[in-house]
Design a protein around this nucleic acid. Structure first.
Lengths: 202, 202
DNA sequence: CCGTTCGTTACAGTCACTGTAAATACTACT
DNA sequence: AGTAGTATTTACAGTGACTGTAACGAACGG
């Protein structure tokens, strides 16, 4: 009863995917600022306006993993301890990264990180996504604890937990030169250390 | 030996102040998006370009307290426990807010918060400032602990501590209807509860 | 009084993003 | 299959933040 995907919907989905993929590739090749939205549109055979019909901003064109993280963390928080939930999600992200590296090469993965870090607009977009993650965590934690999203304990817990994403990003950046496998191990160790500090208390 | 303020410097400082004050007032009156940078420039008798010579962005025109917070937190972290430092800074901010409310009225203070919350560009600017605060905390904590800013423990501590700013903002929003004095008391209580949760551990 | 330095101005331009209306492509119904 | 309705793309015309540059003028140091 919930399957009949109409042609219009498939086209829409495919175009969206094509736009995002094309844009991401172009951003990686030429840099975010050097690519105009009109360029992406032309490369996909549509007009600029169509791009903005599908994406709310130029930054949103970049294929990122935030939606996955939000969904995964919300799900895990429903039946795991907060810190465990976060470590599991970030562990999976690390696995995904290794898989990506196998397909596109570790250098490409690193270039993606450098692109984001080097582009103020993308950094800002990253921050917004992190806030979405925190809000999702607040929601999930409040539900689980039977309190409201206004509860200070819930909010500080969510902030601390999503702080692990900071640790993840920086740790990855720091250890990336050591290659995929070794970096992954070091990142896991850093995350475990940070989580333990939160668990024990400051 | 460090005082001779030249005329040029005074003019610069005064113009900067005038621009920021004028812009903030106009934003509060007409809304952020309804005020063009050229409007602010005209109101101050300068050109648009001059405004951008003084401020990096339209959002930066809004007079906010972040620089004060960054400075204060950095200073306190040098010789207090992290959580105490944060609570002290936020306590002072609350005092400042009460003083502001006495001068401009509590309603004005609330409208300021609503302006920021209702304006996506200002929310983004707020996020960036929070990150600056976190980075400053990392720096200070690393110095104090004798480690590097890469240390996962330092980073998660900084993230958790600046998470208190989240609690502060939301708590203030939640209790603002009760009036300045009562709201301040409630906010302090919420902050104390959140800090205690971090101290005890998750 | 004079050369230098520094901020403002005028101007021209780029580009993300928006609104609107007409055209086109698909869907659903008979 | 035809057709009425709906979703999406297009063409077009804008808005406004932000940038670069060169000329100008005012304050600085001597």
């Amino acid at each position: 009863m919930l399957k009949p995907e109409t042609l219009r919907e498939r086209r829409k989905r495919e175009l969206r995917r094509q736009l995002s993929d094309t844009a991401t590739r172009m951003f990686l090749e030429r840099g975010f600022d050097a690519v105009r939205v009109a360029d992406v549109a032309r490369a996909c055979g549509v007009t600029e306006k169509t791009v903005f019909n599908h994406f709310g901003s130029k930054e949103a064109l970049l294929a990122d993993r935030w939606d996955t993280h939000v969904e995964a963390l919300s799900a895990r928080l429903a039946d795991s301890e907060p810190l465990d939930a976060a470590l599991e999600v970030l562990g999976e992200e690390l696995d995904f990264l290794i898989a990506s590296a196998r397909r596109h090469g570790w250098a490409e993965v690193r270039r993606f990180g450098e692109l984001v870090r080097a582009t103020p607009a993308l950094v800002a977009h990253h921050r917004e996504a992190r806030d979405r993650l925190t809000e999702a965590a607040v929601e999930a934690l409040a539900t689980r604890a039977g309190t409201t999203p206004d509860d200070p304990i819930v909010r500080i817990t969510a902030a601390a937990v999503t702080g692990l994403w900071n640790v993840y990003a920086l740790s990855l950046q720091r250890h990336q030169v050591k290659g995929a496998a070794r970096a992954a191990r070091e990142v896991r160790a850093d995350l475990a250390r940070a989580a333990e500090a939160l668990r024990r208390g400051l």
